[in-house]
Design a binder for these strands. Sequence first.
DNA 1: TAGTGGTCTAGACCACCGT
DNA 2: CGGTGGTCTAGACCACTAC
Lengths: 237, 237
Amino acid sequence: MRMDALLRAGEPMYLVIAGELKGKIIAGEFCPGDTLPSENELRGRFAASRETVRKSLKELENEGYIYSRPGKGYFVCKPEYGRFTLDLREDEDAALRHIAVIVPRAEVAQVLGLDKKKRVIEIVRITHKGGRPSACEMRYLPYSQGQPTIEADIDYAVFPEVAAGKTSAFAFHTEMSISAESAAGKAAQYLECPEGTPLLVLRRYLVSLSGERLGYAVKYILPSSGPLTATTGLLLK
Amino acid sequence: MRMDALLRAGEPMYLVIAGELKGKIIAGEFCPGDTLPSENELRGRFAASRETVRKSLKELENEGYIYSRPGKGYFVCKPEYGRFTLDLREDEDAALRHIAVIVPRAEVAQVLGLDKKKRVIEIVRITHKGGRPSACEMRYLPYSQGQPTIEADIDYAVFPEVAAGKTSAFAFHTEMSISAESAAGKAAQYLECPEGTPLLVLRRYLVSLSGERLGYAVKYILPSSGPLTATTGLLLK
DNA sequence: TAGTGGTCTAGACCACCGT
DNA sequence: CGGTGGTCTAGACCACTAC
């Protein structure tokens, strides 16, 4: 008996099987470390071909619920509650404060691995919330004197988002460090807050495949702009 | 001609194809938004069956490089540079400071959705670095008076890690908020730092499938313990 | 209509694991 | 050895897209 009844809903067989198994995992019928029914067992139970069953299992594997061991079987994963996903894509509301080609201060030169004479492009953006500054960000990129005009660099300099569109994609990745610091200097100035105010500080590094740092960005966030939020990756659906 | 030469290395055909395509994407031969060769085209080029080609493509899709549109083809993704992965699994070095069943203060009761009389288990852990406190964490769980002994609850209370092993896995997920705050009260006391020191604050919530908050943890981190780090998910391999 | 991806099948051979 | 998963094939039918 093919389970065509379930297919009438338009849901492909392999998703039906995957959903069935996922349900049992979430309900606790299968616990972390447990062995799942073998492909053969499932093949019989759902009257599906082996490849279809394997497709279901592959789906669950991709979603992080199970893993397989050749010669042994499929097992339920231990959830990774220590892995969080942080989404920083909402930052499009930042207003440009200024752009300049400058001689970088020591910190920036060091981060980008430049000698002191080399100049960089500095881009400062400020985010407002309720009429008051809530965050500011300084981005730095090596200034290649010569061919590229500042304008081209600026386009590129929206940091990786644009760069990705015009050069080889996936040739970079981004690293970030998160810390808390007291407001001081430029940051306090841009944010119009007293020195000593605790700030959330995000430092991002644009890193090439070969490990070079091609860009550096520091963002200072006032407590008033609310916390960052992150979630454990699983269970979106 | 089957590309058996490439298979001799022990690498399955579908990974060879996937690697080939991935290389071209990373090298910039295929840019974000570009269409990839069709399944049929690849089928011919690699002398493989359609399912094998599809397996390659599925692999790249899982890794986040491409996506497909029925009737149109496969396309190169725009890298998601705004999505970061945060790894918090190194926190096993924290020493237990104390455990107690207490009447929660207002903040905790509100977070957990408890009325004032309900008691909670409080677990305080302190992390040391170079002989000095570098972080402290307070965890709170509703105290179910009755059957469960404190000991059982404590076992459960290592928060989700242990809970996952004994109840239904994947029945919870964790949410987190990250902020910067000035040291004050208990936190300053546990960390032996002056009030006003900027602290990185992580608040984690154990959330059930139905949206209930089953646990709450606040961790205060001194600047001295170094920043949190996160990376853009791709390109691990 | 032709081309594309999405699903599914029934078989095949292999490497791995346990007894 | 028998059972398990891993790879691969050659076909089939479908839905979607574009012309």
